[in-house]
Amino acid sequence: MSWFAAHRHDRRAPLFLLLLALLTTGGVYALLVPPTASAASTTSTDEISAGQKLFTANCATCHGPGATGTAAAPSLVGVGAAAVDFQVGTGRMPAQMSGPQVQVKPVQFDADQIAQLAAYVASLGPGPSIPTAEQVDPAKGDPATGMALFRTNCAQCHNAVGAGGSLSQGKFAPNLWQTTPTHLYEAMLTGPQSMPVFNQATLTSEEKRDIIAFVTKQGGEQPGGLSLGSLGPVSEGLWAWVIGLGALLGAAVWIGAKSS
């Protein structure tokens, strides 16, 4: 202590204090903010090099060697492991063909390979990481808050209960009922294709989990019978004509038919 007291008038003291203040602020910030932007420090170098091999063989044609992007596809530096886990884990990447929107198809890699690719892309620059099981657990979310948030942030494109909807020029917002909680979270975090990014400032991790809690309750059994795709009045009208009026016209023809 006496050493500090003796040197407190040293001309280098303000510099030292500034460094100390920066370190404290940064440290506290790092502790308080959830670690979504951390680089993949836990992954082994083996995983990264395996991922790099997979990347060179399957992805580099479009995304370029080193994933810095080409005219055909964007740079992946800084997109993070979450983006890779979503795009490859849902079967969107590697893309099968160009078009208005990359289509979902059977997943091309196993879980280990996806993890290796994710580790490699994450090693290129800091980006959002894959959420923990706890972050996406629907049981821990509040579906009522989730519904309120879904209505104001998601339903415009994905329909009131996530049945999907149309976007411009052949693009579309997909149905969400078969999407896993982890992929739902990653989609919100990384904003794939036409979807906006919902970062921590827009929707906190808890709010994302509330939305997941709401979405995962949809699409199954609904009160009142068959949901008719949860598409609203158009499908209801179609069935009113086809089934309702169809049956009643049949009955009318039967009643009106001469008995002879």
Binding site: A155, N159, G224
Partner: peptide
């Protein structure tokens, strides 16, 4: 067959409009 599941749409609020509103 379910018809007009209002609980899916939620209470009216002028700001949200969901896809497939007809």
């Amino acid at each position: 067959m379910q018809i007009n599941p209002v609980w899916n749409y939620g209470p009216y609020d002028p700001s949200p409009v969901s896809a497939g509103s007809q």
